[in-house]
Design a protein around this nucleic acid. Structure first.
Length: 438
RNA sequence: GUGGGCGUAGCUCAGUUGGUUAGAGCGCCAGGUUGUGGUCCUGGAGGUCGGGGGUUCGAGACCCCUCGCUCACCCCA
């Protein structure tokens, strides 16, 4: 370890590629997660919270040794017991591991918001720690579940107001037809090695699918006439994929078939899909993706169990929202802000009383001047300032001063402050009153 | 992991061919207004010039190393 790196350990900063999410940005996270939870819970999903750390083998076996994420980007280390541990690089394998461990009765539908770690070089929209919102449904192999799952992700993104998001769909076949297709693709590429881009020359035989995914003009040209997997699926896979497509059509979810869609994890079978934003830079326009992984549970030691899910990148989604300018404005944070220039005891008790009554209330501290306190009240975004000065203290009243709009400050008996404040807020339609509609 | 650009106050930035105690706007604090915000005026606080080393009488500026951000590649969310 060089001196510069060592010195860095003393500096108060987040590690490279990792970020604090603090207010007001964190308010968008809360709202986004809440929306996601409400949506997927309406579809029968329950929350799953799994450890950030797993035995590294879960990912080696599940995602695949050869994958970029496991081979080059995973945070792996031996803990104090000498066990090889890894920080979760994605959300699906831990859920499958959890299924194997607890053998719940399928269908088992879970959702998560989970930090994921990849040791790569960060840039805007790609971080060493990012958060994924996701769902996993284990058990059914039914193509309707594929359609439902894709539609759920689509509905979430559309519900955030995103309009420039496109959906790509493909099928990766299964253990029956994939070997045949890989051989076919390999045979197609073998005589064309020299035409591929530098990095892929000589390596095409290792993972021919990667070449399809490559964006260089050389590889694009060389694979222009490559066989499409969709033309070589086995009959059951063809039928399954046909039902997924008709299901999405029936649900009104637009998609395009993309024979170059190759996902980075080995566990995918049959249906795979990705959502991309047309509003963010191409390098990080992938905002989510997923697919079916019918062999994963068995791979991790469980019974043969089908599964499908998706992960959506929290940071990427918010980037897309920013790019499209669709994110809703934040609601006011506080109903009232308490000011007290008489020593603070009134503020202490009044604030507690109002909070017990269900109101959102903050107050000034450190006995600052009236002017200073009302400036804080204004900045806090509160709708009303409640003023306790010497006059109010002596008279047993509280000054109710509206901060938004042009209403006058008025004096309210201290004993009536909760009902008076609620009455004011309802009247001003800042909070919901009793439902008076028929 | 590879390559380009950039790091000066909380934020956005200025800082001449190297030359005294490093500046502005916004924000923050206080006062003007001895009881009242959003406007205005005045004042104040706040800086290891990302970090370390070097060249020099003298470095925010030049050189080397390093850390971070950023853009691209790779790959992905």
């Amino acid at each position: 370890m060089n001196p510069g790196t060592a010195a860095r350990a003393d500096t108060a900063r987040t590690p490279k590629g990792m970020h604090d999410v603090v207010w007001p940005e964190s308010a968008r996270w809360e709202l986004t997660v809440a929306r996601f939870a409400r949506l997927v819970e309406s579809a029968g999903y329950g929350l799953a919270i799994t450890p950030v750390l797993e035995h590294a083998g879960i990912f080696h076996r599940g995602i695949g040794e050869g994958s970029e994420v496991v081979g080059k980007e995973m945070y792996t280390f031996a803990d104090r017991d000498g066990q090889l541990m890894a920080l979760r690089p994605e959300g699906t394998a831990p859920i499958a591991r959890s299924f194997v461990q607890h053998h719940p009765v399928p269908p088992w539908k879970t959702w998560y918001i989970a930090p994921s770690f990849r040791h790569e070089n960060p840039q805007h929209g790609r971080y060493r720690q990012h958060f994924q919102l996701g769902v996993e449904a284990l058990g059914p192999a039914d193509a309707d579940l594929d359609a439902e799952t894709v539609a759920l992700a689509h509905e979430f993104l559309a519900g955030l107001g995103l309009r420039q998001v496109t959906l790509k769909l493909h099928s990766m076949g299964d253990g029956v037809c994939r070997p045949g297709y890989l051989a076919l693709l390999g045979a197609y590429l073998a005589p064309r090695q020299a035409a591929l881009c530098q990095p892929h020359q000589g390596r095409a035989s290792e993972n021919p699918l990667r070449v399809l995914d490559c964006k260089t003009p050389e590889c694009r040209a060389a694979t222009a006439d490559a066989p499409h997997f969709l033309d070589h699926l086995c009959d059951p896979c063809t039928e399954h994929f046909g039902r997924v497509r008709s299901g999405l059509d029936a649900l009104g979810v637009p998609f395009t078939l993309d024979h170059r869609l190759v996902r980075g994890f080995d566990y995918y079978t049959r249906t795979t899909f990705e959502f991309a934003s047309g509003a963010t830079p191409a390098a990080q326009n992938g905002i989510g993706g997923g697919g079916r992984y019918d062999g994963l549970v068995e791979l991790l030691g469980g019974p043969p169990t089908a599964g499908i899910g998706f992960g959506i990148g929290m940071e990427r989604v918010l980037m897309a929202c920013d790019a499209e300018g669709t994110f809703p404005t934040a609601a006011p944070q506080l109903d009232a802000y308490v000011m007290d220039t008489t020593g603070g005891e009134s503020a202490l008790t009044l604030t507690a009383e109002l909070r017990r009554a269900g109101l959102r209330v903050d107050r000034a501290f450190d006995g600052r001047s009236m002017k200073s306190q009302i400036r804080s009240a204004d900045r806090s975004g509160a709708l009303v300032a409640l003023v306790v000065g010497p006059q109010e203290l002596a008279a047993g009243t509280v000054g109710l001063r509206p901060l938004r709009g042009d209403a006058e400050q008025r004096s309210v008996p201290r004993a009536d402050i909760v009902s008076e404040l609620k009455g004011f807020l309802i009247n001003a339609m800042f909070i919901e009153g009793p439902d008076t509609t028929p």
